[in-house]
Design a protein around this nucleic acid. Sequence first.
DNA 1: TATGCGCGGGACATTTTACGTCCCTAAAAG
DNA 2: CTTTTAGGGACGTAAAATGTCCCGCGCATA
Lengths: 348, 348
Amino acid sequence: MRDLIEIQQKLLPDLVDVLRKRYMLLQSIFHLQPIGRRTLAQVSSTTERILRGEVELLKEMGLLSFTAAGMSVTEEGQRVLERLEPMVAELFGLTELAQRLQHRLKIPEVIVVQGDADRSEWVKQELGRVGARVLKQRIRERDVVAVTGGTSIASLAEHLTPSPVFRSVQFVPARGGLGEKVELQANTLASVMAAKTGGTYRLLHVPDRLSPDALQALLDEPQVVEVLELLRTARIVVHGIGDALVMAKRRKYSPQELEELEQTGAVSEAFGYYFDEAGEIVHRMPTIGLQLEDVRKAEVVLSIAGGASKAKAILSFAKQSCQSVLITDEGAARALLAEGNEKEGEQP
Amino acid sequence: MRDLIEIQQKLLPDLVDVLRKRYMLLQSIFHLQPIGRRTLAQVSSTTERILRGEVELLKEMGLLSFTAAGMSVTEEGQRVLERLEPMVAELFGLTELAQRLQHRLKIPEVIVVQGDADRSEWVKQELGRVGARVLKQRIRERDVVAVTGGTSIASLAEHLTPSPVFRSVQFVPARGGLGEKVELQANTLASVMAAKTGGTYRLLHVPDRLSPDALQALLDEPQVVEVLELLRTARIVVHGIGDALVMAKRRKYSPQELEELEQTGAVSEAFGYYFDEAGEIVHRMPTIGLQLEDVRKAEVVLSIAGGASKAKAILSFAKQSCQSVLITDEGAARALLAEGNEKEGEQP
DNA sequence: TATGCGCGGGACATTTTACGTCCCTAAAAG
DNA sequence: CTTTTAGGGACGTAAAATGTCCCGCGCATA
């Protein structure tokens, strides 16, 4: 049966959403019966008319009965509720997870894909695919999109497809060189995204490990300044969230630096900033680019991070409360919720 | 698994249809890949635009890939196909049954509901519910609906619901008294339907067992003539199909009459006519009303009959080839197809 | 018994979506 | 090199979904 559900989600993703909607509606009616349209619309946070369409269909299917006092669930309706209940967890596992995350992290939209990026390679692909879809649906003419580096964003870039709206879109790396492999650097990914979509891109070429003086000198370079100004106007920010120590190692921090970082309690990394569990900045990479306050000004902040090992990092970065959409996976979501519950247990 | 589908279908009536459509589409692409939209539209007997919507969704889900040469199924798509294959038989059992019946009986639309009316009481209810839905969707302003008697039609009547279009609709009994219980007579059902829908009805009160002379006399009655004329203009005919002997007994034929009827090879009954296996009229009730040629002139002829025991009767009446919609059940459908195959085996 | 209140259901303008249709450019195929 | 066929874009129209309001009717309360 698990099989069938998975296939349904692949083949009829739209219908599964509808199914969830109807199920929850039926459940609400069952609990509140008899109840009228208008009251129910408020409770279900939907409009009267849209609810009406649904209840009329449920009535057609013989699951609801209408009286002058309001609508009630028929016996058949109850049977449907009962028999569907054990499947709901499986059917809506992911969407339910997403909703719980949405609530706990206070992020407007959360999408959870199946699997665990730590365990299966293909989950990263899935994250990228979904991320690409979200970006495509959020994009507008003449947008400036700030992008960071990392494996998740690389996967997103790979899954982008051309579209006319992208013609006028600029992809700009969020920060300068961050000492990663070239195929994971923001500069590279900005160019890949531009190539995949038909958009244009800018580069922010700042060598790794600059001295503060050299940095200051670069900030006087017109080319650099121009890109930085463009970055600040970014309406969309696409970024990954990293585990602090993992990122630091990938960026070839020395053992000593690593230990210092660990001392600060850093757990997450984004845009070259390192945050501790409370969401406080405890360290930042010596490079230039998008500042955290710029991210806050962006209309759409799309975060991608998967794998149970990323749970703490996601939770930490969510404290910034600047995200619009979080795309993660089942593994991270479950780990995150488990952790969150422990914390809550400590201070009830 | 069967469970899941059934329940889901209560909340999502067209789930299986969509699933089947998408599955077949994916399968077609797999066999013909790489293939273009227009070519595929012809093969799948659909329009280009509607197919486009589907393939774009399948592409979004990562099941299809597009190249300049046409579209192809991705590995993920193949995986879906393979995993869905073993479920197809179960999933599409009923729709497939319906299609086979449609083909064998040459009826434009066939609907098969689950179960066997001979074995489970609730199947009759289901037949009625579906029948009511079909009637509601076929009805038009100012229609004249001719209705017969019988348990199936009674069930349909019970499941009708009011709707503004029915205001101008007239329900007319197809034939005069036929010696059944009053709650199963056409007259009664016409009035029930009118009451349930908000329509109006006419009665055709002809006493049982009239002598030919008396019949003739009634045919001169203005009241009777008026209803008969109305009947001939019926755009929709709703009727059941009976087993010849069962109906005869229900109409209190004497043992002698029964034996005579049996001699003629009568197997089915409808509108008071009795037909043999070849579909020939072998007997008719001595009453007045809708003639078979009037049925042929009707635009919509909705037949309802369920239960394996009705298989022969359904097959027999289908020879009239005047039906538009047949609503039956799994039991009847399987029995009918089995019987049909035997007959074919005799004369290949 | 009188009287609101909330009910389902109808009606209708408006928005949004789906669909049919045609065109364009690019890449295979001949 | 030409021709055919591909996917993708564009756009007007038809159809469905939706927002909004109204109505008569039971039920509950006064």
